[in-house]
Computed example of a mutant assay.
Amino acid sequence: MTSRIALVTGASAGIGASCAAALSAAGHRVALMARGESALQTVAATLPGQTLVVPGDVTSRDSVEATFAQVEQHWGPVEVLVHCAGSGASKPLVDTSDDQWQQMLDLNLTAPFRCLRRALPGMTSAGFGRIVVVASVVAKRGESRVAAYTASKHGALGLVRAAAAEVARTGVTVNAVCPGYVDTPMTESTISAIASRKDISHEQARELLGCRQPIGRLVTPDEVADAVMLCVGSGAITGQGINVDGGAVQS
C-alpha cells in the first residue's frame, strides 16, 4: 500500500498505541496525538517508521486545529485519521450528573465530529481518505450503568454513517470499529469497579468480564487494530460499524 500520512488520536496507550504500531509497520508516517507528551514519546520510540508527536486535547477545538495544522506543516494533509481518543464512566442513569453527561458527549461524540470536520476537506480534495473512529459495541446495544457512554457511542456511529454517505463518491471512506471489552487501562478501571461492587478479587472480576464475551476472554488491542487496518486498506468498506467483541453482538 502507498505510504500515507496518518494521525492517531488517543495514541499514548491501549488501542491507540496498537493502531499507531500497525500503521507504522505498514509503512505509513504516523502523527501521535494525546494529552501526555511523555507517554507519546514512549510510543513513538517503539515505532519502526517516521513519527510526529503532537500533544493535544481532542476536547479542545483550538487544540484539534493546532494538531492538524502541525501535521500539515511537517508532512502535508492528513490522509488517514484513526480516532481512538475516548473514555467511559459508570453510573446509574438517575445518578448521572449533567457534568458527567456532557463530559461523555464532549469526548466521545463532539471530539470525533471536530476531527472529521477538519480532516474531510483535504481528503475529498485529494480524492483519497480513510477515517476510522473507534466506537464501542454499546454503539449498537443498550447497557446498564453506562447511559451517557452508550448514548455518546451511538451518536459516534451515527456520525460515521452520515459522513460516509456524504463522501461515498469522493474516494474517502468513513468507518467505525466497535470493540467489546478490550484489555486496556480503561478496562482495568472497569474491572476494579466490578471487584469493589461485588466484593471479589481483581482477577475474579477480570475473568467475569471476559466471560461476558462468547470467546471467554478480553479482546486484545492488536485485534482491534487489525480491524482498523482492514478499513484503512479497503476502498469498498465504508459506513460500517465493525464489531470486535468476541461474538457478543452478531450484526
Rank of each mutant, 00 (worst) to 15 (best):
S251Q: 02
R130F: 02
R161A: 12
C178I: 02
F128H: 08
T173D: 14
L93T: 13
V82P: 07
R197H: 03
A119W: 02
P179T: 09
P121D: 12
S144N: 07
H83P: 13
C211L: 09
V30T: 01
D199I: 09
G36L: 01
A225N: 03
Q250M: 15
N175V: 04
C115K: 00
S201G: 12
E37P: 00
H154N: 00
A6C: 10
G36E: 13
A148N: 03
A20S: 09
A44K: 05
G36M: 01
V71Y: 01
V53K: 01
N243C: 14
Q50V: 06
P214R: 07
H154P: 00
C231P: 05
E166H: 07
L105I: 13
E166P: 06
S3A: 07
T110W: 10
D245G: 04
S144Y: 08
L208N: 09
R4C: 08
R117I: 14
G76W: 02
R141G: 00
A139W: 03
V182K: 01
A248C: 04
D62C: 00
T110N: 13
A44W: 09
A248Y: 10
G16F: 02
R114P: 13
V146A: 09
Q213S: 14
V78W: 01
E188N: 06
S192I: 05
D183V: 00
D226M: 11
G180M: 07
P77D: 13
F128Q: 05
Q73C: 14
E203A: 10
G235Y: 01
H202K: 05
R141E: 12
T67G: 15
L47P: 06
A89V: 02
T173R: 05
G155Y: 02
N175I: 05
A236V: 14
V232S: 05
Q100D: 15
S234I: 13
G210C: 03
K198D: 15
S125N: 08
V146S: 11
C211E: 15
E223M: 12
A148E: 03
I5Y: 10
G27R: 01
N175Y: 03
D226G: 11
C231G: 08
V219Y: 11
E203H: 05
R117K: 14
G127V: 05
E223S: 11
A45N: 12
